[in-house]
């Protein structure tokens, strides 16, 4: 079966994010960018399923600026067969992303779409569930295990109190949790090979989708700082502080 995976280009999770002084957003100039960690897990899952013989073709999709081609090359170096970039410099909110992805799904007809559970920049946690709704497909959000058997899959999802098991019909949308797998490192030969894999570039207009943003950002500010604390010398002093100063025990 064919699988579609989505990959978003985001600020590297280990970079200290700085709010712009004019309050319009965060600093992105000269900041290290990377593939969203949950999307890396999505690609890894598809590649493992291909290695296991369940998947025949992996198509990676990214939406955003021209540099998202690098993100797609990373996905292809991990094992995706080809890439599609929907190129735009506009602000794209999850509903618009989900609509663009729906248009691509209708063209590509995959049996499974694997999406990251959340983008670590906007922390929206919406796109996969929205895509499933627009397609009227079942969803498995926050998935830590997938077993495909023919036209259905047994999935395990992370829920607040533990784990949940579902049987879902295919085609379906699955979103990845951290425990689904540990992504492989890309090797130099695979990076070279990825450069030769096909990468198609489309414009959002070509997909006939209304991507007008519905949310207007009025401001982006720094969160309040915590006042600095004190170092205690030993356990006795800690207990005294908690009892007499903080009064929490």
């Amino acid at each position: 079966m064919k699988v579609l995976v989505t990959v978003k280009r985001v600020i590297d999770p280990y970079v200290k994010v700085r709010v712009k002084s004019d309050g319009t957003g965060v600093e992105t100039a000269n900041v290290k960018m990377t593939i969203n960690p949950f999307c890396e897990i999505a690609v890894e899952q598809a590649v493992r399923m291909k290695e296991a013989g369940t998947v025949t073709e992996i198509v990676a999709v990214s939406i955003g600026v021209q540099q998202c081609q690098e993100t797609l090359r990373t996905a292809m170096a991990m094992g995706a067969d080809r890439g599609i970039l929907v190129e735009t410099a506009a602000d794209m909110q999850p509903l618009a992303i989900a609509k663009l992805l729906k248009a691509i799904v209708e063209k590509e007809q995959p049996k499974l779409v694997i999406v990251g559970k959340q983008a670590i920049d906007d922390d929206s946690n919406q796109t996969g569930q929205m895509l499933a709704a627009l397609l009227n497909w079942p969803q498995s959000a926050f998935t830590s295990k997938i077993e495909v058997n023919g036209d259905a899959a047994d999935v395990t999802r992370e829920i607040d109190g533990g784990l949940e098991k579902l049987a879902i019909k295919l085609p379906a949308v699955v979103t990845t949790d951290l425990r689904l797998n540990e992504p492989r490192y890309v090797t130099l030969p695979n990076i070279m090979k990825a450069k030769k894999k096909p990468l198609e570039v489309l414009k959002p207009e070509a997909l006939g989708v209304d991507v007008t943003p519905r949310l207007k950002t009025l401001s982006v500010t720094e969160p309040p700082k915590r006042s600095s604390g004190v170092k205690v010398a030993d356990v006795a002093e800690l207990i005294a502080k908690l009892k007499n100063e903080a009064r929490v025990i």
Partner: peptide, 23 residues
């Protein structure tokens, strides 16, 4: 915005053609 709300609310939003505001 717990595992419960995160799971179904975006689905509601998409079906109503609304951009959800998360968390």
């Amino acid at each position: 915005a717990s595992g419960f709300g995160k799971n179904f609310m975006p689905r509601v939003a998409a079906l109503l053609d609304v951009q959800q505001v998360s968390d």
